[in-house]
Every structure is written in structure tokens, then in C-alpha cells.
Design a protein around this nucleic acid. Structure first.
Length: 615
RNA sequence: GGCUGCGUAGCUCAACUGGAUAGAGCACUUGACUACGAAUCAAGAGGUUUCAGGUUCGAAUCCUGACGCGGUCACCA
């Protein structure tokens, strides 16, 4: 069965040929969906055709409309408004489509295309628990991976954990000095928070030490000698903090020594490091599970940070990189409007980007993926431009399939999140909060009162998580977004629970209908406006998924689900289902409910949002 | 400062990539539960799309400039 857009396009082409002898074979015919206020589902814009047809847009619309109505069986009628030709699709065609195609369980799922893609997201540091920024990253990465899956790709999800470096050493040192052997279990604290608390404790102790030091004679001398810009004393010490950490601080020195011991493989240090990171992973796993995401593979920087060096040699041989006299290795990307970029230090040690070269190759070796998606904030746009350009020049087999899924930072209504100012929204707290709010709302309702306490809790969890997730995913990835915790617990309007509610209605009507006989549905032949709207939307679902996947944009799926839910609610209000006028209408509407419910569930599933049967 | 992204209703976001009278939600006002679930529906009000030029049948979208807000410019990650 040829898809409607193609059908219309070829119809328009042959129409132009027949009516005006015009050859539009190379022409782009502008086809869009009809705006709500006019009758019809598809609209041909006739302005661009004036040159071909040498007539006014309205005339072309009328003549073309006549032609299409006559020649194309699927087109029932048309109307012309200015340069817009609106086409209505045959009821029978839509009814057939609903029964035959849209009713299928896996409607929307594209057939496997045999291509493998790796999607990276989350990728946290191990010194602190996850926060709102990670939540956006994770939801975006996960939903994109599901979207690609629906589009027919063979998808693997991965994260790369930054488990090494000075940050985790700070937590380790603080625990060693002040922890008195405590464990998450003994302290009764979620394990990643437990470790994070020691990171904070380190900073606190360090600040104390720093303040005390500022009163010493040594410090006064430095203040006098180095405060060139006549800063206020407080401001000066703020700028001096890093230098103090590296040169004078005993805590700083101890942390750095710990890092050195770790690099040397000192068993005690590595043991402690394993123990504390183990706690962190335990905590992360809990959070991931609550968020409903899983990874096919976890990469750890401690195991990958030396990768990429071997690729440097081949790149040098190929002339992609060059070596400076001091031994450092660079790449010159100025002809690609990028800069010269260091790949190896003069002492031969590697850099962030070197590691990224190595992990790209590693993933290719691990999975054979020809596409890789990196879900990383837009502050790293430049880094990924450089990385991808290099991989391209090196002729890596997956180089053309690299995509930086860049997204904007999350702000709060009060401004940016800043850990120093304690305005960071913790991921676990946030989930608790939205679920608690969903619980409060549920108290006002009795629709689930006959269910068990456990079932009700499960429903409430789904509702709260839906509110949170939808709120975040509905915003286009590139956009910097403002996240208002108050709005995230909204359960009405353009929200996850609103969509869930539409789904629940489709289920409720089916519970009442029992195993109704649907065979009469095919005889239904006078679609109500709300029904046409729903079907044409169902019709567009596969192409919507295709477009969203091509653009790596799950927000399109979220908006689609919302629109579909909205039309379901309107349909619900406008027509009677179980008390429909005829058996055919009843059977048809039940079928429609089932199909809409399935698509809502499918779309929301892509977003990682679960649907309750009741709410 | 160079490069780069963004600026749409009071607020949070759309606008099918150049098409119709710029659309939703929240908040505000008003109506609809004795009807398959009111976490719903319907209606009202809310705009010089930051500003100024340009391109064309047609611009929130493309070009130029100005203003405002981010990001980034390490042999850090």
C-alpha cells in the first residue's frame, strides 16, 4: 500500500501534467498537514506552482482539487483557501487502515535495518551523587536510544564513568581521616550520597584549613606581594585557592599524594578506592533503576585513560598528526575552521581527547557499531567537533556515524545550579518529591480505592515519574531549559499524567466492553471530526518516529503523545463509545480506542514512561 | 576580544525546517459531572516573534548590523 503523502504527490504531478502540460518531475511539491481550523488532512501549497501552471494560486487549487478528487480514489473531497489546497481522505480508506494496520500490536516499530548504534549517556563522576543535570542527560540519552530502536537500529547503551582523579581521592582522604570506619549501612545513608558527603567534608575541612592559614605571616606576605590588582582581601583569597591547594595545603598535599599512590598501584590505596567506588556504583545503580534505564556496558576511565596512544602512531604515519620538537603531538585543524589541538603532552602522556580516540575505537571493537551517539552537554560542542574531525581524518570506519547529542544546561527559576551555593537539585530527592506530590493528589480521588495499598503505590510511582520525565523530555534537546520543581509536579495540562490519563480511559472502556465483537467496525462509514483527527494522527506515527530518530529528538515524540492524548480526550467528550448509535460505530470506536492506547503506550515507552492501567 | 548558540503571551515551551489569522500548557475569568473515569472538556483574555534594515508571491525561520543572555577559547577533564 502506497503511503498517502507519496500518493498525493504523484497525483499532483500527473495533475500538473494533464492540466497544464507542466513537467514537475524535478520540482519539490510542498505538502503539509492541514491546520485544525480547516477541513482536510493534507494540504498542497499552490503558490510555488504558479510559475509552472501560469495561473493564480486559487485557480490551480480548484483545478488540481477537481483532478485529484476524480483521479485519486483515496481522496474524498477538497477545499481551497487562498494558495492552499486542502484534501480530505476517504472514510473507507481510514477505516481500513485502522483495522488492518494501526491495530497491530507493534504498530510504529520499523523493521530492523541491520545497523548497530552505541548510545552513550549519564557518564558521571564518582565523587558525588547524581543531580538534575544528570537526570536530563539520562532521560535524553535513554529516550534517544529507545527511539533509535523503534526506528530499526540495533542499539547498545553505554556509559563511561569517571572513576579516577583528584576528586575521588578527596572523598577517600576525608573518609580515611574522619570516617572512623563508617559504611553506608552503618550510617544508614544511600551509598553514593555517603561517599559524596565525604567529598563535601573534605571541602569543608580544606576551607577551615585555608582560613586559618590566611592569618599566618607567610600568608600575609603573599597577600602583599601578589595582590597586584588591589582586590579586596576576600576576593584575592578566592582566586588564590587553587594555588594554595597545590602549594601550601596539607590536605591538598595529602590528596595529591593519594592520587600518586593510586597511580603507582599501591594496594591499600587501590583497595580503598575500590571500596568507595563500589559504594558509589551501588548508589548509582539504585538511581538508574528508579529512572528505569539500563546499560549494556559500563566503561571506566581507570581502564580506558591510557587508550588511544597506539592510534597516535598510525595517525602520525598517515600525516594526520605531527610531532613538535619538544616531543608533543598536535593536529592541525585550521583548514576545517578549528584550531591546532594537542594530542599528547611533551612527556608522552595522554590527554582527554587521546582517551576519547581510544574509547571510540574500543566501542567499535566491542560492538561493531557504525554509529555512535554521545549524550554530552553543549559546553563540549567544540571538543566533539574536534574529536569527530580527527576520527574522520584517520579514516575510522564509524567516522561518518558520529553524533554529539548536545543539550542545553538546566537552570532553576532562581538561576544556575551551583554546588558551591548549595542550589543543586539532587536526583533522588527530586524523584521522592514528585512521587510524594502524586500521592497527595491521589488522596483527592477514589478511582483506585478498591486496589491494594501496594498496587496504589505502584500507580503513584508511575504518575510521579511520568510528570518528572515528561516535563524534561518535552523540551527540545538543544534548548537550555528552566526547570521549575513546582511545575514538574503538575499533573494537569501538558504533562505526563495527562497522557497517562488518556491511556487509562482507553483501558477503562475496554474493561467495561468485555470481549466485544469488532467485526462490524469495517462497516462504519461516517467519521466524526474527532475520529478523523485521531486516525490521521495514528497514520502519521511511523513517519514521526522516523523524523524524530533522524534528528535524535525525543521531544518530538513527547509532543506527539500529548497531541494524541488531547485528541483522545476530545473524542471521549464528543462521542459515545459503549452507547454508540450503531453496532458499527461502537465496534469502530472500540478499535480506535485500542489503537490509540497502543500508540500512546508505545510512544511513552520510547520516552521511558510507564503507563498505569488505572489511576 | 575571536568563534559559537540562543532571544516567541506574565511564566514554561511549540511552530512539520520559507507557508494560512504565530500555537499549547500554567496562571487568571467563565461554563460543563445523575452520561463509557472531571488528573477531563468547552469558552474568554493574553503577541510589533529583542530592535533596525534586506532577500520574495510569503520571514519567528534566510542575509547584514545593533542590543541582551549563555557556552567556549589548556600540553584540565
Amino acid at each position: 500500500m502506497t503511503a498517502l503523502p507519496e500518493l498525493i504527490e504523484t497525483g499532483v504531478r500527473s495533475g500538473l501534467q494533464a492540466l497544464y502540460g507542466a513537467d514537475a518531475s524535478g520540482q519539490e511539491i510542498t505538502l503539509q498537514s492541514t491546520r485544525k481550523e480547516f477541513a482536510g488532512e493534507y494540504t498542497v501549497v499552490t503558490f510555488p506552482l504558479t510559475r509552472l501552471a501560469r495561473k493564480k494560486p486559487e485557480e490551480i487549487g480548484n483545478e488540481l482539487g477537481d483532478y485529484l478528487k476524480r483521479e485519486v480514489a483515496e481522496i474524498k473531497d477538497y477545499n481551497v483557501i487562498k494558495g492552499f489546497l486542502n484534501l480530505e481522505i476517504n472514510d473507507a480508506y481510514y477505516v481500513d487502515f485502522l483495522i488492518g494496520t494501526a491495530g497491530q500490536e507493534d504498530y510504529g516499530q520499523a523493521p530492523a535495518n541491520g545497523e548497530k548504534v552505541v548510545v552513550e549517556f549519564a557518564s558521571p563522576n564518582t565523587n558525588k551523587p547524581l543531580h538534575l543535570g544528570h537526570v536530563r542527560n539520562i532521560l535524553l540519552g535513554w529516550s534517544t536510544s529507545q527511539l533509535l530502536r523503534a526506528a530499526g537500529y540495533d542499539v547498545r547503551t553505554v556509559e563511561i564513568v569517571n572513576d579516577r582523579g583528584i576528586a575521588i581521592c578527596k572523598s577517600m582522604l576525608a573518609w580515611e581521616r574522619f570516617g572512623e570506619g563508617a559504611t553506608p549501612a552503618s550510617a544508614g545513608v544511600k551509598a553514593d550520597h555517603f561517599v559524596g558527603n565525604y567529598y563535601v567534608l573534605f571541602e569543608t575541612k580544606f576551607q577551615e584549613e585555608y582560613r586559618e592559614w590566611q592569618a599566618t605571616a607567610e600568608a600575609r606576605k603573599i597577600l602583599e606581594a601578589e595582590n597586584g590588582k588591589d582586590l579586596e582581601e576576600k576576593a584575592f583569597w578566592k582566586t588564590y585557592k587553587n594555588k594554595y591547594f597545590n602549594q601550601f595545603s596539607s590536605l591538598g598535599t595529602a590528596a595529591k599524594e593519594m592520587l600518586l599512590r593510586w597511580e603507582e598501584g599501591d594496594p591499600d590505596t587501590v583497595g580503598l578506592w575500590n571500596r568507595m567506588n563500589g559504594w558509589v556504583y551501588e548508589g548509582f545503580e539504585e538511581t538508574y533503576t528508579r529512572l528505569g534505564v539500563t546499560f549494556d556496558k559500563h566503561y571506566y576511565e581507570s581502564q580506558t585513560y591510557l587508550l588511544g596512544k597506539d592510534m597516535v602512531d598510525t595517525a602520525l604515519d598517515k600525516g594526520v598528526f605531527y610531532r613538535k620538537e619538544d616531543g608533543s603531538v598536535f593536529v592541525d585543524l585550521t583548514d576545517a575552521k578549528l584550531d591546532q589541538k594537542a594530542i599528547l603532552r611533551a612527556d608522552g602522556t595522554s590527554l582527554y581527547i587521546t582517551q576519547d580516540l581510544g574509547t571510540a575505537r574500543l566501542r567499535y571493537d566491542d560492538f561493531g557499531a557504525t554509529r555512535m551517539v554521545y549524550t554530552v552537554g553543549d559546553e563540549q560542542n567544540y571538543h566533539f567537533q574536534v574529536l569527530f574531525e580527527i576520527l574522520k581524518r584517520m579514516g575510522e570506519p564509524y567516522a561518518d556515524g558520529l553524533f554529539h547529542l548536545s543539550y542545553g544546561m538546566v537552570d532553576l527559576p532562581t538561576g544556575k545550579m551551583k554546588s558551591r551555593e548549595g542550589t543543586v537539585v539532587d536526583a533522588d530527592d527530586l524523584m521522592d518529591e514528585v512521587i510524594q506530590e502524586a500521592y497527595q493528589s491521589s488522596l483527592e480521588r477514589e478511582s483506585t480505592s478498591e486496589l491494594s495499598e501496594e498496587e496504589r503505590r505502584e500507580i503513584i510511582r508511575k504518575i510521579g515519574m511520568a510528570a518528572l520525565k515528561f516535563q524534561i523530555i518535552k523540551v527540545g534537546p538543544q534548548k537550555r531549559m528552566t526547570f521549575d520543581p513546582k511545575e514538574s509536579v503538575d499533573l494537569q495540562g501538558q504533562t505526563g499524567p495527562y497522557v497517562q490519563n488518556a491511556f487509562v480511559r482507553t483501558r477503562a472502556v475496554w474493561r467495561k466492553a468485555g470481549d466485544a465483537d469488532l467485526s462490524a467496525a469495517a462497516e462504519y462509514d461516517s467519521l466524526e471530526p474527532a475520529e478523523r483527527e485521531l486516525i490521521s494522527q495514528l497514520y502519521a506515527y511511523p513517519s514521526l518516529l522516523r523524523d524524530a530518530a533522524a534528528g535524535y529528538d525525543p521531544s518530538l515524540v513527547a509532543m506527539f503523545c500529548y497531541e494524541l492524548a488531547k485528541n483522545l480526550h476530545k473524542f471521549w467528550h464528543d462521542v459515545s463509545i459503549l452507547n454508540a448509535e450503531t453496532p458499527a460505530a461502537k465496534a469502530f470506536r472500540l478499535s480506535l480506542c485500542r489503537a490509540v492506547g497502543n500508540v500512546l503506550e508505545s510512544g511513552m515507552n520510547i520516552l521511558g514512561i510507564e503507563m498505569p492501567e488505572r489511576m
